[in-house]
Design a protein around this nucleic acid. Sequence first.
DNA 1: TTCCATAACTTGACACTGACAAGATTGCAC
DNA 2: GTGCAATCTTGTCAGTGTCAAGTTATGGAA
Lengths: 197, 197
Amino acid sequence: MSTAKTFGDSRRPYHHGDLRRAILTAALDVIAADGPSGLSLRDLARRAGVSHAAPAHHFKDRTGLLTVIAAEGFGLLAGAIGEAADLKDAGVRYVRFAREHPAHFQVMFAPELLREGDLELATARALATDALRHAVSAVPPEGRGADARLAGVAAWSLAHGFATLLLGHNLDGAVGERDPEEVFRVLASMLFRVAAD
Amino acid sequence: MSTAKTFGDSRRPYHHGDLRRAILTAALDVIAADGPSGLSLRDLARRAGVSHAAPAHHFKDRTGLLTVIAAEGFGLLAGAIGEAADLKDAGVRYVRFAREHPAHFQVMFAPELLREGDLELATARALATDALRHAVSAVPPEGRGADARLAGVAAWSLAHGFATLLLGHNLDGAVGERDPEEVFRVLASMLFRVAAD
DNA sequence: TTCCATAACTTGACACTGACAAGATTGCAC
DNA sequence: GTGCAATCTTGTCAGTGTCAAGTTATGGAA
């Protein structure tokens, strides 16, 4: 009933309660700070106050943990892009997602760290690409040149490159004090002049 | 005189001869195949047929090895972009560089794996950014909107995003059988209509 | 309420890794 | 030739991922 499962002593309960989420959030912190290479399951276990083998029960592997994070990321991204008004807005939301969820973003595009066959990952990724495809289809044909598919590739490349360079601090000088989203709006306008501002 | 320094026996010589380069190329192979996370100094030592601590003498660290690779990459990239005729060509060369040197490319933009204070890295990176800046300045003002700096950011973002997504096999479906460089040319044309083909 | 199947977690072990220290071997300048 | 510095080896340590086997709690059926 009370918070302490065991008698009123100082020992922590045998069951953590929400270890899975605790490890996930700790992992996101570590990745955002030091990248996926700085991640250690044993370190996450220590942060959560559990034994070194506890994480394996929830995620099987280091790869399993990262795969869950990637799938979660694609789900979040799909939700964000799904609400976009037009393609430029989708790009802005893509950049916003990368800035708000840098750990997810990094892991999502590090295929060598993921269990590529994972079902949840595949479905979440499909959701995100569908959302992108839908945003592309909303652009009037005269605004996107001959090939609609290439317009999508262009938009994705621009947003992805901008987000990646931003997270890697490669644009600190160029962006300066300006809001990165506003800067990206300018770039997007260069790409699709029809759907301007 | 002969290739075998020691008597005609089967034992390898104490000195490798070109261990530094041997380890570098082995590292590039591993990274291209499995990413930087798949890199192990001991594995590289085994491939080169030397003891496990030999690599440390040439690169100090795992970080040191990766920093050398990144610096080499920026040097190669600067050389490639420096020969570009215009900004679109610079973008094409950027994409070509990423495809021809995927290991370099990955490491160059993984700052958490690098010794950021390293001098050779800083100078090589400065060379590359200068080459990019120069390519941007060659675009006529009416072709690049108000801010020249933003035109550079747009071009860099587009090329970087396209290259990154390409290496991650995120564009396999969209590019199909076409030559990626030709596809990128189309994307670049969308960005800068003035400097069209 | 009792009981038990199962989920959640621990303990222990093994092979592997990066890093450091100290010693052995070799080439090269003088 | 001789000495010195660069190159490479051997040995060791702490840290990591992963597996196997045991311990503890939980939830539902009887």
